[in-house]
């Protein structure tokens, strides 16, 4: 049992709630074209779930539980995919970032063309980026190298 992190109560609540928070973030990002919210809001909620774990269990446990390098890669690749989708809009639609897929029926989950895809990608980008930013601030000290 490591001594980092908070008390047993906080840890138990976090262990149960973290998955609910992630699920809620995914819901917000997926329904971005139907309800208030969207990729950015969903991404922020997902990153808060990871931050909860960092606060409750400490840095050591989190670095074993999550592959921080992989999170960085997910972030960069989703950003590149957004750009690729934008260039596809130039090829098939009227311009950069154009909505070139069929719009579907109103208020259906699979509708609105490329907008849900952008929401998912932005959710992944924002969620990983915000968490990595706070993580980097937590582990870096001025004058020392990063302790990775």
């Amino acid at each position: 049992m490591n001594r980092e992190g908070m008390t047993l109560i906080v840890r138990t609540v976090t262990r149960i709630s973290v998955w609910l928070i992630i699920l809620y973030g995914i819901y917000i990002a997926l329904h971005g074209h139907l309800t208030p919210g969207g990729g950015f809001a969903g991404g922020v909620i997902i990153s808060l779930a990871f931050l909860n774990v960092t606060l409750a269990y400490g840095r050591k446990f989190t670095s074993r539980w999550l592959d921080i390098g992989l999170l960085g890669d997910i972030e960069a690749s989703s950003a590149s995919l957004i750009l690729a989708l934008g260039i596809m809009g130039m090829a098939f639609g009227g311009g950069f970032l154009a909505n070139f897929l069929s719009h579907g029926k109103l208020f259906h989950l699979v509708s609105a063309g490329t907008i849900p895809i952008y929401n998912i990608l932005i959710g992944a980008k924002v969620g990983m980026a915000l968490f990595v930013v706070v993580w980097t601030l937590a582990i870096t000290r001025i004058g020392e190298e990063e302790e990775q």
Binding site: D73, A76, S77, S80, L83, I87, G95, F96
Partner: peptide, 20 residues
């Protein structure tokens, strides 16, 4: 058609650099 590439090319390069 050239104009957006002044933004796209360096932005894509920035993300690809972090990836590869």
């Amino acid at each position: 058609m050239i104009l957006p590439f002044f933004v796209i090319i360096p932005l894509l390069a920035a993300f690809l650099i972090t990836l590869i």
